[in-house]
Design a protein around this nucleic acid. Structure first.
Lengths: 141, 141
DNA sequence: AACAACTATTGACGTCGCCAATTATTGCTC
DNA sequence: GAGCAATAATTGGCGACGTCAATAGTTGTT
């Protein structure tokens, strides 16, 4: 009979939970959660996005995006702007406050990842990241 | 600025979600969820366990274990037996029905993992599993 | 005998993923 | 160009989940 951790899928599930907990722990003091952080980071790389794009890229339900952007607007980290081509859409952009927040927390985020990947040396971390990326690109985002 | 998937921790979080969804999808028809399946599989390897052991090993809250074992008892896949040494404890054991269920679904579980790890060849899957196991053993279960 | 520690259980709270419905707007098509 | 399907954002609801507090019963210790 196969053991509990004999299955890679189950391992991924459990480690994903643990990773989310660690991230949320470090974000706790700022009042944000992992979802907000992911959204901010994506905005930083894209320069601005429709909420629909955020939904498909981040994999969150459109209804979830609404609340997340609401929260970020309240904190002054992002804002909604009307889309010139399509009045149904809103373009979400990072504000200067949001950029500052990312700068301040970037190092802390790395610390969390370090804690998570504790027993792995740099080469192994690279290998793991590459493998996960391959899986992620197949069917995800 | 680091990209969205530049962080291994976030990748793990997202893939963990996806893995859980896949597993739950395949379990849907049986009325169970991933948590039940993990519990059954652990029982199969251990031969029987106190609920407290299940809680620490699987990482679920003790209160969650109660409901899971309730469900499995209703389906006749497991049962609670009094512990001879300690009347506070109950020993949860797999029934013949539970063993049969595991036999029937074992192959389907492998299919899910195959789907998840689609783009990886066997050697890569081994490497990934080994790396994840190393992380898991550090602080988890 | 009294008290701290532990097991299982119940209940509550907030978050999350998912789905349905609604409103405003756009694009298609006839 | 009038009618209609499709789309974007939003609201609300439902079940599952992680977490914590509280309780009853039991054990071990001192």
């Amino acid at each position: 009979m196969r053991g509990l951790h004999a299955d890679t899928g189950y391992l991924l599930y459990r480690l994903g939970l643990r990773s989310g907990q660690l991230f949320n722990g470090f974000l706790q003091e700022s009042g944000l959660r992992l979802r907000h952080y992911a959204l901010l980071r994506f905005l930083a790389t894209s320069g601005g996005a429709l909420q629909r794009e955020l939904s498909t890229t981040l994999g969150y339900d459109p209804s979830a995006i609404v609340g997340l952007v609401d929260d970020l607007e309240k904190l002054g980290f992002a804002e909604r702007r009307p889309s010139p081509d399509d009045r149904r859409s809103r373009i979400v952009v990072l504000t200067e406050g949001g950029r500052g927040f990312l700068r301040d927390t970037d190092e802390a985020g790395l610390r969390v990842t370090n804690e998570l990947l504790g027993p792995l040396n740099p080469a192994e971390r690279d290998a793991l990241h590459t493998l996960l990326l391959r899986i992620a690109e197949d069917g995800l985002s």
